[in-house]
Every structure is written in structure tokens, then in C-alpha cells.
């Protein structure tokens, strides 16, 4: 008996160790990436000057006298993401309410799996469709010479953030205790009144989290926007060709050298800080949601 017990303990420890190692690889990856980005991104900011880098309006990394101002990229990323949220969130939110509360079970299961599929479409496919459908459509509808623009990127991004918004919102809405809704219905409220005045407020932290998740998806997307945005480092304007933070890194990294390459790492660092910020907001929202439930 004693033998088996100590064997068991040994086994327990071994299992612990293996899982610890596997778990640590994820943590180590994050650490390595963070440290690497800081080490390779900070020197260029020093050389260029943080004001010139963050607030410079001209990016000409390959000309004889290079200028490394990334304000156009930052603003484009911010505007692009904001635009995608403005279009994508209302659609995603209402869709989530429909799936979670209104839809009959047959339609519900079909719609959920379609949303799942939407999440699984590779971003290059979104880009391709944007390039072949949305860009020419914008050109015709607004009667402008070329459709590759911030607007095209916003439209593509707003579809791309739908799955994140819908899935997380649906989960939050479904977690609302049925008693809340029953009470509301018993007091004479209609079903729609109940959904929007009881269920949605009860799920608000989850819905907020879904929006933040969508923001993260939009700001980090490179491939699809690269194919529809035109990629010229202009200050952002709805019908102009623009370059995002992500595409600035992606389009020049392969042939860059010297200070140009270092500056690209600095752009990646700025993008990384944005995403860290978004994650911090997400965590704060999740925590608040948790506390509310405890009350």
C-alpha cells in the first residue's frame, strides 16, 4: 500500500511539472515578444526623437533624406477602428440579441454556426472580396476615381469584427438569469421591452467586453486592410488611400534595413502598446462584471 501511495505522489508531481512546463511556454512567448519588441523598438524612437516619431506627419522611409513620422498611421488605425466599431457594433449587437433571445431554435442554431463560419474565414479572403467587390462599388457609388480608401477598409473591418461582437454578446445575454426576464414579463412588460430593458442591462459588462474584443481584432488586422486601403502614407481621410500601423510594418519589413527596420519595430511597439491598453480595458470590464454578479 505504502509503495503505491508514494508512487501516486511521484506521478502527481510529474504531471504537475509537465503541465507547468507546457503552461510556461505560453507565458515565455509573451515575455520574449515583449522584451524583444522593447529592445528593438526603443532605440529608433530615441534616434528619431519621440515627438518627431509619434507626431511627425510625413513617412518617407526610403527617400534620400528619410522622415519617420507615424502620426498618419496612428490616426488611420484609430479612425479605421472607430469606423468599424460604429458600423459593426450596432449590427453585431442587434444580431446577438436576436440570436440569444428572439430567434426560434432552428434559426438560432443555423445563425450561430454561420457566425462561427464568419470567424473562420481567413483575412486574405476578406481582403480579396474587398478588393474585387467593395473597392469598385465605392468607386461607383461615390463617383470617385479610385475606391481603395479608408472607407473600404472600414467596411471590411466592420464585417470582420462581427463574429467577436456577436459571440461574446450572445454568451453574455444567455447568462442572464431567466428569473429576471420572467419577473419582467410577469409585471406586464412585452418581450422586446424585457430584452432591451432587463436582459441587455444585466449583460452590459459582457457586451462591453465584446466591443473591446472587436476593437482589438480591428486594430490588429493587417492582411485584409492592406489589400483594400491603397497603402499610401497619407493623413487619413475617408476617400483617400491610407496606411494602417499594421500595414506599415507588413509592407516594408521584408526589404527594410538600418534605421528604417528599427523604425518598423518601433511602429510594432506602438501597436503592441495599443493592444496592451485594449487588453487592460477588457480585463477591467471583466472584473467589474464579476463583481456585479457577486452583489
Amino acid at each position: 500500500m505504502k509503495g503505491t501511495k508514494s508512487n501516486q505522489r511521484m506521478l502527481e508531481k510529474a504531471v504537475h511539472l509537465v503541465f507547468l512546463i507546457l503552461g510556461l511556454t505560453a507565458v515565455a512567448s509573451v515575455l520574449v515578444i515583449t522584451v524583444y519588441l522593447f529592445i528593438s523598438g526603443v532605440p529608433a524612437i530615441g534616434k528619431i526623437g519621440i515627438i518627431d516619431f509619434l507626431f511627425g506627419k510625413t513617412w518617407t522611409s526610403t527617400s534620400a533624406e528619410p522622415q519617420y513620422g507615424i502620426l498618419p498611421f496612428i490616426l488611420t488605425s484609430v479612425y479605421g477602428t472607430a469606423g468599424a466599431v460604429i458600423i459593426g457594433v450596432p449590427v453585431g449587437f442587434l444580431c446577438a440579441v436576436y440570436i440569444a433571445k428572439v430567434a426560434p431554435s432552428g434559426i438560432k442554431s443555423v445563425m450561430s454556426s454561420v457566425v462561427g463560419l464568419l470567424a473562420g474565414i481567413p483575412s486574405v479572403v476578406y481582403g480579396l472580396i474587398g478588393m474585387l467587390v467593395i473597392v469598385p462599388a465605392i468607386m461607383k457609388v461615390f463617383n470617385i476615381p479610385d475606391g481603395a480608401s479608408l472607407l473600404a477598409a472600414i467596411l471590411v473591418l466592420s464585417v470582420m469584427i462581427l463574429p467577436s461582437v456577436i459571440k461574446v454578446s450572445v454568451t453574455a445575454l444567455e447568462a442572464v438569469p431567466k428569473e429576471y426576464e420572467d419577473a419582467s414579463l410577469a409585471l406586464g412588460a412585452t418581450k422586446i421591452e424585457t430584452y432591451f430593458k432587463v436582459s441587455v442591462p444585466a449583460a452590459k459588462s459582457g457586451i462591453a467586453a465584446s466591443i473591446v474584443l472587436g476593437v482589438g481584432r480591428a486594430i490588429g488586422e493587417a492582411m485584409a486592410v492592406m489589400m483594400v486601403a491603397g497603402n499610401v502614407a497619407n493623413m487619413p481621410s475617408l476617400f483617400q488611400s491610407v496606411r494602417f500601423l499594421t500595414t506599415a510594418v507588413a509592407s516594408e519589413m521584408s526589404y527594410s534595413s538600418g534605421l528604417q527596420r528599427e523604425a518598423l519595430f518601433s511602429i510594432a511597439l506602438v501597436l503592441f502598446l495599443f493592444i496592451m491598453l485594449i487588453n487592460a480595458i477588457l480585463n477591467a470590464l471583466m472584473k467589474r462584471g464579476g463583481n456585479e454578479d457577486e452583489k
Binding site: T60, T62, P145, V232
Partner: peptide, 11 residues
Amino acid sequence: KDSCKLRQELT
């Protein structure tokens, strides 16, 4: 060189 004003820059 360095003076092109492009509407789109493709890869």
C-alpha cells in the same frame, strides 16, 4: 525618384 505622388502603393 522620391517624387512620385501615388494614389495606391501595391506590393
